[in-house]
Amino acid sequence: MKLLWKLAATVTAALVLAGCSSTPENTSPVEDRTAATGAATGGNPGASTSGVSTGATTAGTAIQGNNAGSAAAGAGATDPALRDPRSPLSRREIFYDFDSFVVKDEYKPLLEAHAAYLKRNRSARLTVEGNTDDRGSREYNLALGQKRAESVKRVLALLGVSEAQVETVSFGEEKPRNPAASEPAWSENRRCDLRYAGE
């Protein structure tokens, strides 16, 4: 396993250096709920009599993750092993250095455990959520969070996990766990979270 880890780390580094974006696509794509969006707003400013509109209402406020969840209601949803605090599977966070998307060595046992779990449970689906601190451009940070999530996916793939089991998403700097403007808060926010479908 140690060798495999090294291999994974090396290949990842090589991919990173090469700026290679060879990530195969189409891990069960998250669908969007276009239909719901028509309900967004009332309001017809052109009309004089009914010009007093309610403004927008709550088009997107109910956030059901029904897509990702139901698509893969596999072992992940209920497996108590994932929540056992003694198991490395209960550890779901990978922290990063400033402006970096390199997965540090200390997360080796954690990712090995999740890789083994995903290989044992082929119906399990994992979403890697990338986050950043709030320094720098919001748009750039969204892309950086994506790079972080993809770096984790790549390590898992190199450990033998099927690409189809792992999806990536980025929240950039928009969902900070700690909103303070301090280094401790920032390092807390430079993070990927591993979330199994159904959780």
Partner: peptide, 29 residues
């Protein structure tokens, strides 16, 4: 981010009507 990931929407300022720009996997921003 309403769909659990970032997506681009286009909305009329006057009618409030809105729609996704594209339906695709991954983040759109």
């Amino acid at each position: 981010f309403e769909g659990r990931k970032p997506s681009v929407y286009v909305q009329s300022v006057t009618t409030g009507e809105r729609a996704l720009l594209v339906r695709a996997s991954g983040n759109q921003s």
